[in-house]
């Protein structure tokens, strides 16, 4: 910022807005929780939460909705991060939900859609009244229409046609017992903003975000990683390539992109030049229908 003109850069302005939102939740809710997967957006969100309450600790726990299909690097990262910040970690497991008969494993083994039940059960069981999510409006067109404070009824449902108008920086978090508010502090950030901010703040990320050699095979136009949760079918050829991940989700449906970007500067340059959205390039779950995300969100998805 320059003292003469009192200007903030776009990253400073976005950071100030996000910190405002996070503090507002801490002030007005009884039991907030922050969803933390170790993915880059949730890493930025937790970093902002830590900054918002410095020198005190983050005054709420973080929660991981664990599909059981994880990249080991990401789990290690999750654990070291919560330890460093001294926050409590709640793990809600999709495998537990399957064992309890709350949901059934799908024939294709994809657990991303099953997370909704696990998430809503965990919100209920813990009595959480505000749930921070790292979703951004530039990610997907249904998300482009969602509020920063997004009301959920007792079934966790989102009603896109009946959202509260959101004006100025006044956020209405009113709800009754059993209802909750999803809060999206990164609503106005783009993928490029996130990477520029990670670089500027020198924030650690799981290593799989940076270029590395990996055994992959092609399915539905995406490069999937060979691993314990993912094996190639007969006709799918395994190759070793230099790749990185642009998003990190349920391992069987998260695609890698061919890339040699090994540093933040490389990635910022790559993201600035890319001609594909991150979800289009790497997430099979969003390709199902035009309104796949909207339908999942209405049921209570992230």
């Amino acid at each position: 910022m320059t003292a003469q003109t009192y200007e903030l850069s776009h990253l400073q302005a976005l950071e100030a807005e996000s910190i405002h939102i996070i503090r507002e939740v801490a002030a007005e809710f009884e039991r907030p929780v922050l969803l933390f997967s170790g993915g880059k957006d949730s890493v930025v969100m937790l970093h902002l939460a830590a900054k918002a309450f410095t020198p005190a600790r983050v005054p709420f726990p973080v929660m991981h909705i664990d599909t059981g299909h994880n990249f080991d690097e990401v789990l290690d990262f999750r654990d070291s991060t919560v330890e460093r910040l001294g926050v409590r970690l709640v793990v809600a497991s999709v495998e537990d939900s399957i064992a309890k008969g709350r949901v059934r494993e799908r024939p294709d083994g994809v657990r991303n859609p099953l997370q909704t039940v696990t998430l809503l059960d965990a919100i209920n069981d813990n009595g959480f009244d505000a749930v921070f999510g790292g979703a951004r409006r530039d990610e997907e067109k249904a998300r482009a229409k969602e509020r920063v404070f997004s009301f959920r009824d007792e079934f966790g449902q989102w009603d896109p046609k009946n959202q509260r108008p959101e004006l100025w920086s006044l956020y209405n978090g009113r709800h009754h017992k059993g209802e909750h508010i999803r809060v999206f502090p990164l609503s106005n950030w783009t993928e490029l903003d996130v990477w520029q901010y990670l670089a500027a703040e020198e924030i650690d990320l799981p290593s799989i975000y940076f270029a590395h050699e990996r055994e992959v095979f092609q399915r539905d136009g995406m490069w999937l990683s060979v691993g314990k949760h993912n094996s190639p079918r007969e006709h799918e050829e395994v190759v070793t390539m230099t790749v990185r991940f642009r998003t990190v989700g349920d391992a069987p449906i998260t695609g890698a992109v061919e890339s040699t970007a090994a540093t933040y500067d490389d990635i910022v340059a790559e993201v600035a030049a890319t001609r594909m959205t991150e979800r289009g390039a790497t997430r099979a779950d969003d390709r199902l229908t035009e309104a796949a995300m909207e339908d999942r969100k209405k049921e209570g998805y992230f």
Binding site: R137, D138, Q163, L192, D193, A291, E294
Partner: peptide, 30 residues
């Protein structure tokens, strides 16, 4: 590009405020 909701596509109308993002070397726009 902006009419993201199912009801908007079905009815061919825009129901709600949509936020779009772009940047030039000089500024970032919302």
């Amino acid at each position: 590009l902006t009419d993201g909701l199912r009801a908007e596509r079905e009815q061919g109308i825009t129901i709600d405020v949509a936020y779009r993002y772009f940047a030039t070397p000089k500024r970032k726009f919302i």
